[in-house]
Structure formats: structure tokens, C-alpha cells
């Protein structure tokens, strides 16, 4: 899905050349990714692998940084940085 070079179904799509400002969400996800890389918690290659694992309908629906936070979360769970139970509890707090 991510491997888009020359893929026919996108060949007739116009490019949206307008500027799109980044949101606070986008900037924070980007910063957390950088910090996890600098601290050797998660490499950029692991981030990419996590993004590539997102099923196609979700990949196309999610924004760029929405894919990132999903991959970061996936990686943190897989590495045991936090557990799914801890994540579910923290998500309850965000309601």
C-alpha cells in the first residue's frame, strides 16, 4: 500500500499543491517520534514498518500523522514500553 511509485490508480489524481498548516497534534506526534528515535526506544525503520502494517482502508483514511501515532502506539505495545492494560486505562482518562 505504502509502495506508491507509478501505481496506476493514483496516476489520474491531481496533486493538491495548496499549503496545509500542521496542527498541534501533528507537531506533537512528530516531536515524540523524534525523541523516541534519539533515545533509541524506536527507530524510524520501526515506525515505517508499523505504518506499512496498517490495513489499506485505514491507511487511506488516516492522515499522515494519524498513521504515525498508530504506529508509535503499536511499537510501544510490542516493545513492552507500556502494556495494553495500561493503555486502556490511560485512554479511559482521556474520555
Amino acid at each position: 500500500m505504502h509502495d506508491m511509485g507509478g501505481v496506476s490508480k493514483f496516476m489520474c489524481d491531481a496533486v493538491d499543491v495548496e499549503p496545509h498548516a500542521l496542527s498541534a497534534f501533528d507537531r506533537e506526534v512528530d516531536a515524540i517520534r523524534q525523541l523516541l528515535g534519539a533515545k533509541k526506544v524506536m527507530s524510524v525503520d520501526e515506525l515505517r514498518r508499523g505504518i506499512e502494517a496498517i490495513p489499506e482502508p485505514d491507511y487511506l483514511r488516516l492522515s499522515y500523522y494519524q498513521r504515525w501515532i498508530r504506529s508509535i502506539t503499536d511499537n510501544m505495545l510490542a516493545k513492552g514500553v507500556f502494556t495494553e492494560a495500561e493503555l486502556l486505562a490511560a485512554l479511559e482518562d482521556t474520555k
Partner: peptide, 12 residues
């Protein structure tokens, strides 16, 4: 995603 970010930020 915004809730995921809030939870991940909290945990990290």
C-alpha cells in the same frame, strides 16, 4: 488519534 496521543503522552 487525538485520544491515542493523549494516552501515549501520559504513559511515556
Amino acid at each position: 488519534s487525538d485520544r491515542l496521543l493523549a494516552a501515549v503522552r501520559q504513559l511515556l
